[in-house]
């Protein structure tokens, strides 16, 4: 990894860190939702730098798109600010966090380096895929080729299951006119009570 890319990595990770700390410190839920959207856009960009475009795609669509809308919808049901509570310094939770972090960092030492040719993922079947994917499918991205071509039927089944689940959720919750008429009285009575 050359200097420029590592500099971009450092800058993106620093911004991610700042946003995460800000999300923890803030009390206005609306601002937190907005910052969470910015956070997932940033991390999606970082995934692109790491060449994980498919993860970035999902992160951008789910993290910045859907979950922002979901969080705002959830905010409708609660108050607009979090309860302000006095900061209590718990020694035991702090120690547990530090210990878990240390163990995780220790575990990363054993991981092969990014793009290591001798790693287990790259030396057995993975190498075969990398060699043959161009001739077999003609898809430029190997992950996409595996997902949509080699195990295409599997992906089709997954998509059917997710679609069925989505339809079931929509049928249960109800969208559009039906839920609008049911919701409008409730919303008004809540507004009056304030």
């Amino acid at each position: 990894m050359d200097l420029g890319t590592s500099l971009i990595n450092v800058a993106l990770l620093a911004m991610l860190f700042v946003v995460a700390v800000a999300i923890i410190r803030m009390r206005s839920l609306f601002a937190i939702v907005m910052l969470a959207g910015a956070y997932s856009l940033l991390s999606a960009t970082w995934f692109v730098v790491l060449d994980a475009v498919d993860v970035a795609f999902t992160e951008a669509a789910v993290g910045a798109g859907i979950s922002t809308a979901l969080m705002l919808g959830a905010m409708l049901l609660t108050s607009r600010t979090a309860k302000s509570e006095r900061a209590i310094l718990g020694v035991v939770p702090f120690l547990v966090c530090v210990l878990t972090g240390a163990v995780l960092i220790y575990a990363t030492i054993d991981l092969p380096a990014l793009g290591d040719a001798a790693s287990a993922a790259n030396s057995h079947v993975g190498a075969q895929y990398l060699e043959r994917v161009q001739a077999d499918t003609g898809v430029p991205n190997v992950v996409t080729a595996v997902l949509a071509s080699y195990r295409g039927f599997d992906t089709l089944g997954e998509t059917c299951v997710i679609f069925a689940a989505g339809v079931a959720v929509v049928l249960l919750l109800g969208f559009g006119e039906r839920s609008l008429s049911a919701r409008s009285d409730k919303g008004r009575s809540r507004k009056e009570s304030k």
Partner: peptide, 26 residues
């Protein structure tokens, strides 16, 4: 991918503004 980001950004901003104006997505 940048086009997707632009779309998501647009839709999210519309959603936020709609929420601010109407207090509902519906």
């Amino acid at each position: 991918l940048a086009i997707l980001y632009a779309l998501i950004n647009f839709v999210a901003t519309i959603a936020v503004l709609k929420f601010v104006r109407y207090r509902s997505f519906q």
